[in-house]
């Protein structure tokens, strides 16, 4: 039993889709908590509902059953405005395919969030964007457009963009899926380093090795949590191999 109050409580959450005449149950009564200062990894094969779970927590999709509690409030009962505020203040998203805005440079992709999501004063935007780019090792690549960056660099911009909001929870969908080994490790180091000061990182992946760096690992199969494993001593990313 963890004495710390969870950031998010997931209780018997379900999600089903109707595709034509077929109903697909992507999530079935999933229950777990997301704690601050922790890295949580959700492991499972393709199609097991990992990304669906991430999307529910990120507030970009809504569960069809169960509860997703944030600060004691059910996310399904939030108004559109409150949901937007939740996504704005609580969540940072790192998409599997980066989803950078193609006609903005790396720096502008971050500035865009700082200006229009965080309402940061114009004078500070440039400085902060440069800081964020430097923090992901791209201080000199800020004027490049996404198509001029490698996959790893795009992923790092995507992380910097997520960090720009200084969210409480960072959600990363297969953050190493498109990356080579060394770039993947760098990205993981970045993500893990974020889980402090009351912040939490949730990574979904099919790569079992990534479970070793997590404080907690949830094994997902066919939309259900098969088991939940707690690592008292997570492995440092530098020792990780796959």
């Amino acid at each position: 039993m963890n004495a710390v109050e969870p950031l998010i409580k997931v209780e018997n959450m379900s999600k089903s889709y109707t595709m034509g005449e077929v109903t697909v149950n992507a999530l079935r009564e999933v229950t777990f908590d997301l704690f601050p200062d922790q890295v949580t990894v959700i492991l499972g094969p393709s199609g097991c509902g990992k990304t669906t779970l991430l999307n529910q927590i990120g507030g970009i999709d809504t569960p069809t059953g169960g509860k997703l509690l944030v600060g004691g409030r059910e996310i399904q009962k939030l108004s559109q405005k409150e949901l937007t505020d939740y996504r704005r203040k609580m969540i940072g998203f790192v998409f599997q395919f980066f989803n950078l805005i193609p006609n903005l440079t790396a720096r502008e992709n971050i500035e865009f969030v700082l200006e229009y999501v965080m309402d940061m004063p114009s004078g500070e935007v440039k400085r902060r964007a440069q800081e964020l780019l430097a923090s992901v090792g791209l201080g000199d690549r800020g004027d490049h457009f996404p198509y001029q960056l490698s996959g790893g660099e795009q992923q790092r911009v995507s992380i910097a963009r997520a960090l720009a909001k200084d969210p409480r929870i960072l959600l990363a969908d297969e953050p190493t899926g498109e990356l080579d080994y060394s770039t993947g490790k760098k990205i993981l180091e970045l993500l893990v380093s974020f889980a402090n000061n009351g912040r939490s990182v949730l990574i979904v992946t099919h790569n079992k090795e990534l479970g070793k760096i997590a404080n907690r690992v949830l094994h997902l199969r066919d939309g259900r949590v098969l088991r939940e494993v707690t690592n008292e001593r997570p492995m440092p990313v530098s020792q990780l191999e796959w």
Partner: peptide, 19 residues
Amino acid sequence: PQIGIFKALGMRDRTILIY
């Protein structure tokens, strides 16, 4: 899809409309 990303990033509807 871009509107979806804007929303996922927490951008307000009003801001998207201004864009």
